[in-house]
């Protein structure tokens, strides 16, 4: 997967400089619903302006920059509610922007090269997209509402609930796998010549999607699931 040079995000760093070093952070800002015109604000100032905890913002920005979250982080319930908004916003990005874009590129490519493999490739992508949609729908309709109830301390409203962070973790499937297949088919196997511009756009879109999906699952695994389990423990004591 594509990796940017590592720059550790610190509260005193200027946001614009961080974006310059890793433009993927724009996507992070978008998922946080923060405008791109960051003036010359530092991370810390930006967090105050947006009412986002510095700890959460720095942790997620560091995931984008290739630094793992080590050990338990004291994320507050308010932080975790923001994390859910963040994840929902990335769902929106996949559904409304990224998948339609990729799907369009594949269709164009198929029209320009009406070979059998391309027909199958289009079908492959469609099936993959359906799987992803199912996963996103599951998170939106089951997992996130559960976490929101848990975080708002209303878990007693739903007696007999069976759901848990652990179950979510188990359900959490690897949706990046087929994406990798698609990339490898295009780079190594499917026999198409020319059309470099379209093929490059398609590959770039796949890389961008892959990177964001990767961060998405890191946020779920490293922040949401462990913190959810922690709160469940406290609630059950």
């Amino acid at each position: 997967m594509f990796h940017t040079p590592k720059t550790k995000v610190r509260p005193a760093t200027k946001m614009a400089e961080l974006i310059d070093a890793n433009p993927h952070l724009l996507l992070m800002l978008q998922h946080f619903n923060i405008d791109f015109r960051v003036n010359d604000l530092t991370v810390w100032q930006l967090c105050i302006r947006q009412g986002i905890s510095e700890n959460l913002f720095v942790s997620i920005a560091n995931l984008y920059n290739g630094f793992d979250i080590r050990g338990p982080q004291p994320f507050t319930r308010g932080d975790l509610l923001l994390v859910i908004d963040f994840l929902k916003s990335s769902h929106d990005f996949y559904r409304r922007e990224k998948y339609p874009q990729i799907s369009n590129y594949i269709r164009q490519l198929q029209e320009n090269h009406p070979v059998r493999e391309m027909k199958l490739l289009e079908k492959f992508f469609k099936e993959y997209f359906d799987e992803v949609l199912e996963h996103l729908d599951y998170e939106d309709s089951t997992a996130f509402p559960y976490f929101i109830t848990l975080l708002e301390g209303r878990e007693n409203d739903r007696p007999g609930k069976r759901y848990s962070s652990k179950e979510y973790g188990d359900h959490h499937t690897d949706i990046e796998l087929k994406l990798q297949d698609l990339k490898n088919l295009l780079l190594m196997h499917v026999d198409i010549e020319g059309d470099l511009e379209l093929r490059r756009k398609l590959l770039f879109a796949l890389y961008e999607l892959e990177f964001d999906l990767y961060i998405h699952s890191l946020i779920e695994e490293k922040i949401l699931i462990p913190s959810g389990q922690q709160i469940e423990k406290e609630v059950n004591v």
Binding site: R116, K123, F124, K178, Q180, M188, V190
Partner: peptide, 17 residues
Amino acid sequence: KTGIRSQSGLTIYAISK
């Protein structure tokens, strides 16, 4: 060897080869 893991991906591989 192929870098492809899913069955549907392997199908496309087998056809292109």
